[in-house]
Deep mutational scan, measured.
Amino acid sequence: KVILLEDVKGLGKKGDVVEVKDGYARNFLIPQGLAVEATKGNLKEL
């Protein structure tokens, strides 16, 4: 699961917690600054 930092077409809006494949999160969303891993600490910051 990841928390979206920006609106991502076809996935969700900023602040949404979405389930995506590990590779998509690690190789695209997180490096592009579009999402962060949905850890307990990150979820509390919402």
Rank of each mutant, 00 (worst) to 15 (best):
Y24H: 06
A25F: 09
G15K: 03
I3S: 03
N27K: 12
Y24M: 06
K9V: 12
G33D: 03
N42G: 06
Q32C: 14
V8T: 03
D16Q: 12
E45S: 08
I30G: 02
G10W: 13
A38Q: 06
V20F: 03
K21W: 13
Q32P: 02
I30M: 05
K13E: 07
K40H: 13
K21F: 14
F28G: 02
K40M: 14
I30A: 02
K14P: 03
K9N: 11
G23P: 12
V2T: 02
K1G: 04
E19P: 06
D16C: 10
D16G: 04
L11H: 03
A25H: 03
L4E: 00
P31V: 15
K44P: 15
L29S: 01
A38V: 05
V2M: 10
F28N: 04
L11K: 02
G41L: 11
G23D: 11
E37N: 09
K21G: 12
D7R: 09
K1Q: 11
G23T: 14
K44G: 15
G33H: 09
K44S: 11
V8D: 00
Y24W: 10
L11I: 09
L29P: 01
Y24V: 08
L5I: 10
P31K: 15
D22S: 15
Q32V: 07
E6R: 15
I3M: 09
N42F: 05
V36A: 09
L34H: 04
L43R: 03
N42Y: 04
R26Y: 09
G10K: 05
K44N: 15
A25G: 07
G23Q: 11
L5F: 03
K14A: 08
L29T: 01
I3C: 06
E45H: 10
F28S: 03
K13Q: 11
L43M: 06
V2D: 00
D7K: 06
F28E: 04
A35W: 01
N27Q: 12
V18Y: 03
A38Y: 14
L4Y: 00
L4R: 00
L11S: 02
G12E: 00
Q32F: 13
G33F: 08
N27M: 13
P31G: 13
E37M: 13
L43W: 04
F28P: 01
K40T: 14
K40F: 15
K44E: 15
K1A: 10
K14G: 04
G33C: 07
V8K: 02
L43K: 06
V17C: 06
L34G: 01
Q32G: 09
L4W: 00
T39C: 08
G12T: 00
D7V: 05
L46E: 15
L4D: 00
G12S: 01
E45K: 07
V20C: 10
Y24E: 05
E19M: 11
E6W: 14
V17H: 07
D16P: 00
D7G: 06
V36T: 07
K13T: 08
A25Q: 03
A38M: 08
K13C: 10
A25L: 07
D7Y: 12
Y24Q: 04
G41M: 10
K21M: 13
V36P: 00
K9Y: 15
D7S: 09
L11G: 01
A35P: 01
V18M: 08
G12H: 00
G10Q: 06
G15N: 08
K14Q: 08
K21C: 12
I3K: 07
L11T: 04
N42T: 07
K1F: 12
G33V: 03
L4S: 00
P31D: 12
Y24A: 03
L29Y: 02
R26L: 08
K21H: 14
I30K: 03
P31A: 14
K40G: 10
V18H: 02
A38I: 05
V36K: 09
L5M: 10
L34S: 03
A35I: 02
G33A: 07
L43C: 14
Q32R: 14
Q32A: 13
V36S: 06
V36R: 09
Y24R: 04
K9T: 12
A35T: 01
Y24P: 02
V8A: 02
L34P: 01
E6K: 14
P31Q: 14
I3G: 00
G10P: 05
D7F: 11
A25E: 02
A35N: 00
V36C: 09
D16R: 05
G15H: 09
K44A: 14
G10F: 12
L34E: 01
K1W: 13
N42M: 07
G12W: 01
D22E: 12
E19D: 11
E37G: 06
D16L: 04
V17Q: 07
K9I: 12
K1E: 07
E37Y: 15
F28Q: 04
V18E: 01
K14V: 07
N42P: 06
I30P: 01
N27I: 09
E37F: 15
L11R: 02
L46I: 15
V8C: 06
G12C: 01
K21Y: 12
I30C: 04
T39K: 07
L4G: 00
D16V: 05
L5A: 03
K44R: 08
D16H: 06
T39H: 07
V18T: 03
A25Y: 05
L34D: 02
L29D: 01
E6C: 11
L29E: 01
N27Y: 15
K40P: 15
G12I: 00
K1L: 11
G23A: 14
L4N: 00
K9H: 12
A38G: 06
V17M: 08
N42H: 08
L5R: 07
E37D: 09
R26A: 08
L46F: 08
K9S: 11
L43P: 05
K44W: 09
R26H: 07
D7Q: 06
L5P: 01
D7E: 11
K40A: 15
K40R: 07
E45M: 04
F28K: 04
G12N: 00
L46V: 13
I3E: 05
L34T: 03
G12M: 00
A25N: 03
E19S: 10
K40S: 12
K13D: 05
D7I: 05
I3D: 00
P31H: 14
V8S: 02
I30D: 02
V17I: 08
G23C: 13
G15S: 04
Y24T: 05
G10I: 03
A38T: 07
D22I: 12
V17G: 02
Q32W: 15
V17E: 07
V17D: 02
V17N: 04
A35R: 00
F28L: 05
G41Q: 13
L43A: 04
N42S: 07
L46S: 15
D7C: 11
R26I: 08
L5Y: 03
L11F: 10
